[in-house]
Write a protein that binds this DNA or RNA. Structure first.
Lengths: 131, 131
DNA sequence: TCAGTTGCTTACGTTGAGGTAAGTTATGGG
DNA sequence: CCCATAACTTACCTCAACGTAAGCAACTGA
């Protein structure tokens, strides 16, 4: 065998044009917005099924507008199912799908990473800022 | 023992106020922007160390402005080290830190999830859109 | 008649992310 | 003298994300 690696011989842009990283970027853009991760984690904490108003209480600071649009996006992506009941006042329940639950695993990986390393990030920021 | 679970008895907003999920949201906001994930993956592919212009070529579509600011953020967060050489024309190299490399593990979890499930997301979107 | 309830939507304004294009610095080579 | 080069920075503009506040539907109970 020759050298350990010569990645510069390959098309360097290959990774950014292949479909998987494109999907990851889309995924990260989706769950990287301001509220999605909190809504997903809260819904999981509430047993995987909750009413609109329960989520509203579970995610402090979120507005009805943002909760509504966040849930709509999650529903469109197949992460959540919306079920409405013909009652007055209306009752609507949101339930995580298998697909949504499956995303909790890699998400937990990020939660764990943050738990272990966020302090280090903070310190890096401080020492960068004070020069 | 009583019921299997009664999560609604707990403070439902607890998770969103605890520090770990707050860190995850910050983390997701950082790597959820338009270019960071591509820059990180490309830098890794290039052996963990690369010049500005190499990254520019590796990430098709990125502008100098965005590459510069993305790298600056990564440097500030301690993910990357910037090394400049007193030459003309200038040469600058960026190298991943251990912290940056450690983030690749949970990131790979997301890449794998996208690889397995993105098609399903697409289908969910289509069937949602056509009603 | 009227207030209260839930789960929204609509209107409007602000802010920041990101795109485009041009300028900058310092030097070697023709 | 002037251009090329690498790695930026700066100026300017646009658009989408997000916040705030109000409106709405449909029925119940006082």
């Amino acid at each position: 065998m020759g050298k350990a690696s010569q990645p510069r011989q390959l098309d360097p842009a290959a990774i950014c044009r292949s479909s998987d990283p494109l999907a990851v970027r889309e995924l990260l853009t989706k769950i990287g917005d301001k509220w999605t991760i909190f809504v997903v984690l809260s819904l999981d904490l509430l047993g995987g099924r909750a009413r609109f108003s329960e989520l509203e209480r579970a995610v402090p600071g979120i507005s009805q507008r943002m909760l509504s649009s966040t849930l709509k996006n999650l529903e469109r992506d197949g992460m959540v199912i919306r079920e409405m009941f013909a009652e007055v006042p209306p009752r609507v329940e949101y339930e995580m799908t298998d697909l949504g639950r499956s995303l909790l695993r890699p998400t937990q990986g990020l939660v764990d990473w943050a738990k272990e390393n966020w302090q280090q990030v903070r310190e890096a920021q401080s020492s960068y800022d004070e020069r």
